[in-house]
Simulated assay, not measured.
Amino acid sequence: MKLSQDILLGLFFTTVGVVAATMAVSYPFGTSSRMGPGYFPIIISSLLIVTGLLILLRSRLTRVVIPTVGWKPVIAVPLSILVFGLAVEPLGLPIAVFLLTVLSASTSEKFRFDWRAFAGAAAFAAFCSILFVDLLGLPVPIVGNWLQGLAS
């Protein structure tokens, strides 16, 4: 039997669902009208198990072999998340989101760093800043501590 994307994804979902359900059964379940702390995790993990089993069933019906792995996205996307995490405090949220967007988008073969990419990343950074800081009130700096001397 050759491994396919469906087999791996089905096994992943089923395994995560079983582990989560095993952890969640120790909490009181409650009822639909008075949910206990285990209610939501058990429901979600059960849905995850069912989804994984359905994907495994689908894998029996189709024969799709795993394509070659594109290493650029596998390395660049986690790296861009790491850059975001390291940059948000010293540079501020807008610059960190800009870097995250550009670095992760650069994994696409269609990506070109031109004015449209710059404008899109800048607009997304502004949107995230307004959403998370102004509207949701998260304590994330707009201007990082490295740039505070420049902003004054």
Rank of each mutant, 00 (worst) to 15 (best):
M1W: 08
T14Y: 01
A21S: 12
T22L: 10
M23D: 12
V25W: 13
V25Y: 13
F29P: 03
M35R: 15
M35N: 12
G38I: 04
G38D: 04
G38M: 06
G38Y: 02
G38F: 00
Y39N: 07
I44V: 15
S45T: 05
L47M: 12
L47H: 06
L48Q: 00
I49K: 11
L53N: 03
L54P: 02
I55F: 08
L56G: 08
L57S: 06
L57D: 04
L57E: 06
S59V: 03
R63I: 09
R63L: 09
I66L: 14
I66K: 09
T68N: 14
T68V: 06
V69D: 07
G70F: 07
G70T: 06
P73E: 09
V77W: 05
L79S: 05
S80L: 04
L82I: 15
F84P: 03
F84Y: 13
A87M: 06
P90Y: 06
L91T: 02
A96H: 02
L99Y: 00
L99F: 02
V102F: 01
A105E: 02
T107P: 03
S108Y: 08
E109T: 10
F111T: 04
R112Y: 08
D114F: 04
R116H: 14
A117Y: 07
A117L: 11
A117K: 10
F118R: 05
A119V: 10
A119H: 11
G120Q: 03
A123C: 10
F124G: 05
V133Q: 03
V133G: 03
L135M: 12
L135T: 10
L135R: 15
G137F: 08
V140H: 07
P141F: 07
I142N: 05
Q148F: 10
